[in-house]
């Protein structure tokens, strides 16, 4: 299964070290392939280096493409993470 979704980042930490790390962990946990697009840049969602290079701060929009058996569950968790206005530990 392949799902795409545009998500607006509400997390005050943006897609920075801690949320970026959690994102990689989610992708690995569900064994899905994850692509994240911002503007013209597309990066592998399993690469923390790639995610950081997007420089996606709070309020920016990213286009998420999840592919794999558990794509739905993975996307749900990703949305929770990025749309959560509370900073994560």
């Amino acid at each position: 299964m392949r799902i795409e979704k545009v998500i607006k980042i509400k997390n005050p930490q943006g897609l920075h070290a801690r949320p970026a790390a959690l994102l990689v962990q989610i992708a690995n946990k569900y064994g899905v392939s994850l692509k994240i697009k911002k503007g013209k840049t597309v990066v592998d969602g399993k690469s923390i280096m790639g995610i950081l290079m997007l420089e996606a701060g709070e309020g920016s929009q990213v286009h998420v493409v999840v592919e794999g058996e558990s794509a739905e569950e993975a996307l749900r968790e990703i949305e929770e993470l990025l749309e959560n206005a509370e900073p994560v530990e």
């Binding site: 070290a17 801690r18 790390a21 990689v24 990066v43 592998d44 399993k46 690469s47 923390i48 280096m49 790639g50 530990e89």
Partner: peptide
């Protein structure tokens, strides 16, 4: 020790 979690991810980073 969270910082090391990030370090581990950087270490295993597939892009790199």
């Amino acid at each position: 020790d969270k910082i090391f979690e990030v370090h581990l991810l950087l270490l295993e980073d597939r892009m790199l």
